[in-house]
């Protein structure tokens, strides 16, 4: 184990997988010479050369289409879309092509490709650069969607994504890049796709989060512990496939749930999780599922009002207290 940032953990995963498999290559806007807008691809060009670390034109749809073709042709592309917001320019290749090709061609091919997308709000980047689009991808069958919260999971999940033979959308939170944690050095350390993690044990309220929301949930849980409330925090890690089993096991123990989602509330993943919980264990619930969500507004710029639109540790703490006291 060694301590490193979320950014360095991702960087290490890329390097290890490129050393491990010569068919892995990296492409995206400014990923080579400039070493990535968020410096996740730092040092790759120097170690692996121009053939395997490729700067591309600003053509998001084609970045993904080229990755689809390259994957069909026997390579293992790792594409970086500079931010998740730009994925909207590539939705045709992501949804109409990448996610459907295996099925509509009768299983005769597969696409071992990964698309990394930094995203999330909280950096005062305005409406077009602060979105949390995870549910857009979760909604579409044919691909996996991952969202690590910690440096260790960032490394282990990215390695699993690159080795997986299915297309993977890999979301990274921009505010987590500098966060630090212990990361296993073992180059065979992999985090399984489709498995949530109990990030903190507790027995009174289950708080479900992912990405930066997990970090905020843990902060809230720590404060609540001081107030005598025991929270179990479930970090989803994998949004598709969603690990319903781990969520439900925790809810069966606690009987109360708060789901935290950074995305917009309407059709947010909290609604899907609540529905699954109701289907699985409605009669064990002591309170309705409580949702803490991003507000249904285009993100404003000003830091004062931007904060209002994104779940905070304090909002989560309040939601847990509401659930505990029967205020829904």
């Amino acid at each position: 184990m060694s301590e490193m940032t979320y950014r360095d953990a991702l960087n290490l995963a890329l390097k290890e997988e490129m050393r491990h498999d010569p068919s892995v290559f990296v492409l995206g806007e400014d990923v080579a010479l400039y070493e990535g807008s968020f410096k996740v691809t730092r040092g790759l060009l120097a170690e692996f050369g121009e053939e395997r670390v490729r700067d591309t034109p600003i053509s998001e749809n084609t970045i993904i289409g080229v990755s689809v073709g390259a994957a069909m042709g026997g390579l293992r592309p790792v594409a970086e879309l500079m931010t998740v917001n730009f994925a909207l320019l590539a939705m045709d290749q992501i949804v109409n092509h990448m996610a459907k090709i295996r099925s509509m061609f009768g299983g005769q091919t597969f696409l071992p490709m990964t698309i990394r997308m930094p995203g999330g709000g909280g950096s005062q980047l305005g409406a077009q650069h602060s979105q949390s689009l995870e549910t857009y991808f979760m909604h579409c069958p044919g691909m996996h969607v991952l969202y690590p919260a910690t440096p260790a999971d960032a490394k282990g999940l990215l390695k699993s994504a690159i080795r997986d033979n299915n297309p993977v959308v890999f979301l990274e939170h921009e505010l987590l890049y500098n966060s630090k944690g212990e990361v296993p050095e073992d180059p065979e350390f992999l985090v399984p796709i489709g498995k949530a993690r109990v990030a903190r044990s507790g027995d009174q309220v289950t708080v479900v989060g992912y990405g930066r929301m997990t970090i905020l949930a843990l902060q809230a849980a720590e404060e609540l512990a001081g107030e005598g409330v025991s929270c179990e925090v479930v970090d989803l890690r994998s949004l598709a496939p969603l690990d319903t089993e781990t969520i439900v096991a925790s809810v069966k123990k606690s009987g109360r749930v708060v789901v935290v989602e950074e995305c917009w509330r309407t059709c947010g993943l909290g609604a899907e999780i609540a529905s699954r919980i109701y289907d699985a264990c409605f009669d064990l619930l002591q309170a309705p599922v409580k949702r803490v969500s991003g507000l249904d507004v285009p993100m404003p710029y000003s830091r004062k009002i931007e904060k209002t639109c994104i779940p905070q540790a304090e909002t989560i703490r309040q939601a847990v207290k509401d659930v505990m006291s029967g205020r829904y």
Binding site: E51, T62, V66, A70, A71, M72, G74, Q93, H97
Partner: peptide, 22 residues
Amino acid sequence: GYAIVGGQFPISVGLAFAAQYR
């Protein structure tokens, strides 16, 4: 065969890249 008009362009480029890479 691709049914979104123009969808096959980047995929063709990707296949050509894979061929060259290999």
